[in-house]
Design a protein around this nucleic acid. Sequence first.
DNA 1: GTGTCAATAAATATCGATATTTTGGAGAGC
DNA 2: GCTCTCCAAAATATCGATATTTATTGACAC
Lengths: 220, 220
Amino acid sequence: MNMIDTQTGKETSATRTAYLSVRNMILTGELPAGQKIKIEHLRGKLDMGASPVREALSLLTSDMLVERIDQRGFRAAAASPENFAEILKLRCALEDMALRQSIALATPDWEEKLVLAHHHMTRATGTAQFEEAHKTFHKTLLSNAASPMMERYCDQLYDLNIRYRNLAASEPNYQSRDIPAEHKDIFDAAIARDADAASAALLSHYRLTGEYLALQLTGL
Amino acid sequence: MNMIDTQTGKETSATRTAYLSVRNMILTGELPAGQKIKIEHLRGKLDMGASPVREALSLLTSDMLVERIDQRGFRAAAASPENFAEILKLRCALEDMALRQSIALATPDWEEKLVLAHHHMTRATGTAQFEEAHKTFHKTLLSNAASPMMERYCDQLYDLNIRYRNLAASEPNYQSRDIPAEHKDIFDAAIARDADAASAALLSHYRLTGEYLALQLTGL
DNA sequence: GTGTCAATAAATATCGATATTTTGGAGAGC
DNA sequence: GCTCTCCAAAATATCGATATTTATTGACAC
């Protein structure tokens, strides 16, 4: 006679729901960069009280996706070509360090994870599925660095980069690039424990994408 | 008939008060690393409702001073020798980059700020006053890099480092070091726009302090 | 026209109360 | 003696209402 709730599930809190929703709205551009975020509006849209919304927005501050101004509420983080350039530069510097550490500490276990992550990426079907696998692949590359803070920074920067890709609007059209080959190069070098080659391939991968996106961001 | 409040002042919000208080408690070790933070306890101590306390804790998450576990509240960020080593490494990498950029973009205005910041540090009297001036000096060094995110990271890492200095408990006793001379070296090289020398001096300054602190942290 | 100021409207910040969830422990069963 | 289950007690999470603060508007003087 106990009442295990409807459909078991419900493994979540209102704050978490709000956090994920708003995060997604900002990453996709549904909440435009720099725009004021009205608590009342979100509260209605998400059907919850103001407290979890405020808390979610406060947490999003960590991810540099939301700015908070005392007594004046929240707004979606501004976006600009300069900001994008900075993200790219920081990513290159931090991921270079992290990847080299990962390789220096390479273990069979890490290599196996990497093999799987790469394989999943090549087999992904839909766009969403590929995005997921792509993120996992890049995270796995750095996951052996034994450096949680650095991984956190890299994670943040990855998401900020995704945001700009979405803000660039037009469907990505990667001219003459062979993206799978670029990934394969990074992957092969990492597995071969060739840190210099792996880092070079990774940074080139980022910089090519960066240059391409930067061109489309002149309107910001 | 109107009630302009007592003593005009009151330039602050409850959330901000809570943020600064808790931040200070964690930096000084009054809230020990890893310890659970009870909202009710703080609410009483700071004499305010639970909402601003929660919001302050959520914001402190950005600074990596507080960890949040869904449905299970907040705790002061853990501390460990490994974490300290990571902070040191990241600081060295990021500040090296930032300082070089600052110097590359050097202007008379920046140099003047730097001269003043260094002067204030040499003239500071109390410990608190010196700490303040010291922080300002280091921030000023990087302030010309035109890279807000990098500066934010460096700020964070600076505070995390201060925390470990406080956690190391015993009064700092910098053996045979001449701290003012170390600062002077950094300062002179920066003013001379010698990026290599400035960076070398800065990193040496950090690493010496780091080694010294690391010895005292074995108990963590 | 243009700028200032007060009144109003809107939004944020905060409180106090309540609903949920987790934690700790006391017995029941093995 | 050791788990496991189930029940308080404690703490967190969330709501709805209210107090404050900021933004807007329009009248009025210059």
